[in-house]
Design a protein around this nucleic acid. Structure first.
Length: 879
DNA sequence: CTGTTCACG
DNA sequence: ACGTACGTGAACAGA
């Protein structure tokens, strides 16, 4: 085996990474995407080639020998964007810290350096690999020198490899003729004009026939193609110059400093620190922890795997003011727990022998009575730990969510970074990869111990800074009085679940299937062919091309076939209504009939998960399954609610707030007229219409009421004339007129909404009545679209968020009273403005009273909070 | 893995 | 000129 040298075209690869990948910025706002991409390619190629030597060549700013020959050379090259420019020194710094040799030479380009070093490397008997994004380098390919050209295909980096033979295969010319090819064809990037009228095809043919430009010129009369013949005759001198310019110099005065190029350990401590600074988390694991001297926390991890030790451990934990706990479990079992008694005292307790899941559950439950139990995610822990609603707990995930609800995850390693001075811990993925907890536990992997301890450590250590920040931001009350008690409320709802009649659901689904098949046949018949109706792409082609139904493009990817578009086309062709019905039925079948059927558990009930840290506004969300979007608006879909039933001896009581968001708006804006309207009117939309259009209440037409209702909604969403016009199918002008009239009628609302936008711009966030914040970074955007979005968000979030706060308060109060009054009835669902209680029949009056009192009393607004309540033997009836 | 569509508030 | 109403989650298609 020969020794191998890898030569990299620095600017070219950096450039490619910059344009081919999304830009990144680190926490200090430095642009880093191109450097990241460069390193990614570097690591990939190093892994593949395992060279003994490595050098990265860079261009210099001084003019080169090419400029001397041809002053226009690269004259029109577009200037490098600032975001890329500033990454060059960053890359050089990184390479220096990785102890990778960089080479550059005044008067020469990186190409020339690569060519020279490649030649010298070959002379020393080495294999040479050149990594570049520039195809010009192909002229350097030989039997021992391979050119590697990375490109992005389908989001993946693939590398094309060229030795001499591959160049011949792909371009039908020898590497040396690559120069001739370029001289003939020209190169816009380097401002080389080439021969007008000669493209790749002609150039290749000429070279195949004559071998070189000179020889072609000496046989110019024989060239059959007229255009090429005359052009070559006229531009021969230029072509010769081009050739000269395109030729890479392989004997530039640069030393082959073998020792300097020798590849050592690139994962140095200095490089590690720079990677940290740049937020290159994915690279950090490549570094040897011992080498970079990080993660000294692991020295404080201990294993406790005997009963006696555990007894002592939990005894000691019970004396502490607070402990961090991480419980490792999944659907198949409980594997162990991490305990942090201090920042330098972490224990891993695997489930083993006498230390059972039940033992841990009990011990953690007891801890909650004497000590603050800090956890990344209390609700999940509650499923396997016997903590009661009066336990002292601290939920780091929820605290972090309140401090920044825009994040998508709140993992321990993120929290450590954000709240422990940028401390970097290995995450779960990094420790275990795709290995399941169960497998790691069965094989006693040390990574499982690390996971448990890191998690417990973070839960313990972030509590103080999280608490301080919550206090600083005025959100401590929202945290302690709303979110933290809600953890237990939601846990209880998840544990109870809701009974669903599987058989009936199946029957419902089968009925749908019959009609779906009918419609499918009908649609195919009308279309004149079978196709996938579920594919918007195929459907668009059928409707708008084959059947030529008028109605143009909308989306980036093709035609829009969404319901609101199709509804407008219903009169054009009967197929449209069939498609709409088909869509409706397949939705009901796949998402609800089949989807819900698949998640009924052995107890005959569905146990959804209510997520508390997802939404930007403070609402909760529901997953697996989502029980907050069960059909209700259309009768056919609404029937699904009949399969949601209470247990024998119970009924459903369903209570929902009437127009809570509009009432919140009335209160927060303090608009006297709207407040007065709510005090008087039973139909707020009708009254709005009457006031906005200046007509007596009795004379409001249904259309006027509908319009007023749409405006009311629009106000809550952060009004825009375009949005309203879309909703009402009217012109923007008309919509704008409605809005103007609305604001004239309720002047304080305009002032209130403008104030929210202003506050958002000034402070960077908006707040609910209870102090919950939502950052609105979009308001700072220079992009009109983004900024407008930010404005609507600033107007909507305080309203939606306050309503969310209110119902959360109500839920906690209802839950508490059901417990305190020792009732059998239980809260099972929340749908944003609605609570569903599975009510023991004897308790109906008491529960009705509780619901009414606690929902209405959850907040003291300038307008009444009105609650509508219904009772039924299934969810359909109770709505 | 992203975009489209559609169910809810 | 830009091209959207606010907040979610699930299924499906097509790369």
């Amino acid at each position: 085996m020969c020794e191998k040298i890898l030569l990299i075209d620095g600017h070219s690869i950096l450039n490619r990474a910059f344009y081919g990948l999304p830009d990144l910025t680190n926490s200090e706002g430095l642009h880093t995407g191109a450097v990241y991409g460069f390193l990614n390619i570097l690591f990939k190629v190093l892994g593949e080639e395992k060279p003994e030597y490595l050098a990265v060549a860079f261009d210099r700013s001084e003019p080169t020998f090419r400029h001397a020959k041809y002053p226009e050379y690269k004259g029109t090259r577009k200037p490098m964007p600032q975001e890329l420019k500033e990454q060059i020194p960053l890359l050089k710094e990184m390479l220096e810290k990785m102890e990778i040799a960089t080479v550059s030479l005044a008067g020469f380009e990186a190409d020339d350096i690569l060519g020279t070093l490649a030649k010298k490397g070959e002379e020393k008997g080495m294999d040479v690999i050149i990594l570049s994004g520039d195809r010009d380098l192909l002229q350097l390919a030989t039997k021992k020198t391979m050119i590697r050209l990375p490109r992005t295909a389908k989001g993946q980096t693939v590398i094309e490899d060229y030795k001499e033979d591959q160049v011949q295969e792909r371009y039908l010319v020898t590497p040396a003729q690559v120069i001739e090819l370029k001289a003939l064809m020209g190169d816009a990037a380097d401002n080389i004009p080439g021969i007008p009228g000669v493209g790749e095809k002609t150039a290749t043919r000429l070279l195949a026939e004559y071998g070189s430009i000179e020889n072609a010129f000496s046989h110019v009369e024989e060239i059959s193609q007229k255009r090429a013949r005359e052009s070559l005759r006229e531009n021969y001198q230029m072509a010769q110059l081009s050739k000269e310019l395109a030729t890479i110099c392989t004997n530039s005065p640069i030393e082959f400093e073998q020792e300097k190029f020798q590849l050592g350990n690139i994962f140095t401590k200095e490089a590690y620190e720079l990677c940290r600074k740049l937020d290159f988390r994915n690279f950090l694991m490549k570094f040897d922890p011992a080498e970079v001297n990080e993660n000294t926390i692991e020295q404080d991890f201990f294993i406790c795997n005997d009963l006696e030790g555990c007894e002592a451990l939990f005894e000691k934990a019970g004396q502490a003011e607070a402990v961090g706990i991480a419980l490792l479990w999944d659907k198949e079992g409980v594997y162990g727990a991490g305990l942090a008694l201090g920042e330098d005292e972490m224990y891993y307790v695997p489930v083993e022998g006498m230390v059972t899941a039940a033992y841990l559950s009990d011990k953690i439950g007891r801890l909650g009575k004497s000590t603050t139990v800090c956890s990344m995610d209390v609700k999940t822990m509650l499923k396997r730990a016997d903590l009661t609603p009066d336990a002292n707990v601290f939920d780091c995930g929820i605290a972090a969510y309140l401090l920044n609800p825009l994040k998508s995850t709140y993992t321990y390693e993120e929290l450590a970074k954000d709240y422990l001075d940028g401390k970097l811990l290995p995450g779960k993925e990094e420790l275990l990869g795709k290995i399941s907890l169960k497998k790691a536990w069965e094989e006693d992997m040390p990574e499982l111990e690390h996971l448990a301890c890191y998690m417990a450590y973070t839960a313990f250590a972030t509590r103080a800074p999280l608490k301080a920040k919550l206090q600083e931001t005025g959100m401590w009350k929202v945290y302690t009085e709303i979110e933290l008690p809600l953890v237990f409320t939601l846990d209880s709802m998840e544990k109870w679940g809701i009974e669903v009649k599987g058989e009936e659901l199946k029957n419902y689904g089968e009925k749908l299937t019959v009609r779906i098949h009918e419609l499918e046949k009908l649609i195919w018949q009308q279309a004149g062919e079978e196709f996938n109706i579920n594919s918007p792409k195929q459907l668009g082609v059928i409707l708008f091309e084959k059947m030529a139904i008028p109605g143009g493009k909308k989306t980036k990817t093709g035609y829009s076939t969404s319901a609101d578009i199709l509804e407008k086309l219903a009169s054009e062709n009967p197929i449209v209504n069939d498609i709409l019905e088909y869509r409706q039925l397949t939705k009901l079948k796949s998402t609800y009939a089949d989807g819900l059927g698949a998640v009924i558990e052995k107890d005959g009930r569905i146990h959804s998960t209510f997520n508390q840290t997802i939404t930007a506004t403070g609402r909760i969300s529901s997953t697996e399954p989502n029980l907050q979007n069960i059909p209700v608006r259309m009768e056919l879909g609404r029937l699904i609610r009949k399969v949601f039933v209470p247990e024998a001896g119970f009924v459903f009581l369903d209570a929902d707030y009437s127009q809570i968001e509009l009432r919140v708006l009335a209160h927060m804006s303090g608009d006297e007229k709207l407040i007065k309207a709510y005090r008087e009117a039973e139909d707020i939309h009708r009254l709005t219409a009457s006031q906005v259009f200046h007509i007596p209440l009795e004379e409001v037409t249904p259309l006027q009421r509908r319009n007023a209702k749409a405006v009311n909604f629009g106000i809550v969403y952060g009004i825009s004339s375009f949005g309203l016009s879309q909703d009402l199918s009217i012109t923007r002008k008309e919509a704008a007129a409605y809005i103007q009239k609305y604001f004239e009628t309720y002047p304080s609302i305009k002032g209130f909404l403008d104030g929210l936008v202003e506050q958002g711009k000034e402070k960077g966030y908006v707040s609910t009545m209870f102090g919950r914040r939502r950052p609105v970074p979009e308001l700072k955007s220079s992009n009109f679209m983004q900024r407008s979005f930010g404005e609507r968000v600033a107007m909507n979030s305080p309203i939606q968020g306050t309503a969310a706060d209110i119902i959360k308060i109500a839920m906690n109060r209802v839950y508490k009273r059901l417990l305190d009054e020792k009732l059998r009835s239980r809260l099972v669902l929340q749908v944003h403005d609605e609570l569903l209680i599975e009510t023991w029949k004897d308790e109906i009056p008491q529960v009705s009273r509780i619901l009414e009192e606690e929902m209405k009393g959850a907040a003291n607004l300038a307008v009444e909070l009105e609650v509508d309540m219904h009772q039924g033997n299934n969810w359909y009836e109770a709505k």
